[in-house]
Design a protein around this nucleic acid. Structure first.
Lengths: 166, 166
DNA sequence: CTACATGCAAAGGGTTTGCACGACA
DNA sequence: TGTCGTGCAAACCCTTTGCATGTAG
């Protein structure tokens, strides 16, 4: 599952380049957090990244790891699984449906699409396990956010997102 | 966004039926939590369900709402957005890829599928906003969990899931 | 040099749990 | 009447933040 060495280098330079071009100082801590996430084969949590980096930078603290990871997310250099900073949300809709997620405000909206309901399980998945449910997630900017004043973020009336923007 | 009255009734009876057939008493609190989640048009968090139910059952407590919602999830009667009980996980893989999520242990595994990379944006989505990224999530049981002894759950070596399995 | 980043520790906030009381079968 | 469910409050745990110190550019 680990990426090739080549791929790691490529990601790493993308990360460091992205940070530098944003005027963010490339400290040893940030560099090593970047290296760790660039070479991760799965989807580590902050604690896991912390443990990895600490082997090379024993003095790093967990909150610096968090800060660096969120900086990378904010710059669009890495992603999170699920919606960032989201508390648990429940979905009572058992009919097949899919989700549109606004990456700015976090609002998740259902939509239906017959074509997506009947996606066949690709070969790559059969060795992983048995599929019971398939859902398509489309991420982008919702209409409301697109219209909203360029700068800061806004919150939907339904009250999402503690908001970590910038 | 609210479901039709008809649809609500249908969901509600599915929920209550599922609980009863599992030998779970249908108290007024549980009934009203079921009603609330059945009639929700979006994806409420526990707090939001709590506020709704409290209008009808003023004495209900937040933790009863949580307990009931998780009971429904455990019975497969409702879902959560994202992986239940999951802390924030970061994904350094910026190349297009998709996820297989094991609903038992929570493990999220990447897979590639060219067909999924090029899914076109359906009409239903255009009025919602602009799509920047599309990801398919397939949920099911991973090979390891399928093989594991029927009863209790196990945790992957990578250390997922606090584990709430009935 | 000077602004920015780090580490520490404490606060914060959502979620879960232990326990005694209350309610339904 | 016994068992199961509820409410309360405290515990938990991940995550964030304020502040003094350290450091990259």
């Amino acid at each position: 599952m680990r990426p090739e060495q080549d791929e790691i280098e490529q990601r790493l330079s993308r990360f460091t380049g992205g940070l530098k071009s944003a005027g963010i100082k490339l400290t040893i801590q940030r560099l090593e957090v970047c290296r760790e996430i660039a070479s991760a084969g799965s989807h580590p949590d902050a604690e896991s990244v912390f443990r990895g980096v600490r082997q090379r930078v024993p003095t790093i603290s967990l909150d610096t790891v968090y800060r660096t990871l969120w900086t990378l997310v904010d710059r669009g250099l890495i992603d999170t699984l699920g919606v960032p900073h989201e508390r648990t949300r429940f979905d009572g809709n058992t009919a097949p449906h899919h989700h549109f997620v606004c990456t700015r405000c976090g609002e998740t909206t259902d939509f239906c699409c017959d074509a997506f309901d009947s996606l066949s399980v690709p070969e790559a998945v059969t060795p992983l396990g048995t599929v019971q449910k398939t859902q398509v997630e489309m991420r982008g900017i919702c209409l409301r956010c697109a219209k909203a004043p360029a700068s800061g973020d806004h919150q939907h009336a339904t009250g999402h997102r503690p908001g970590r923007n910038q």
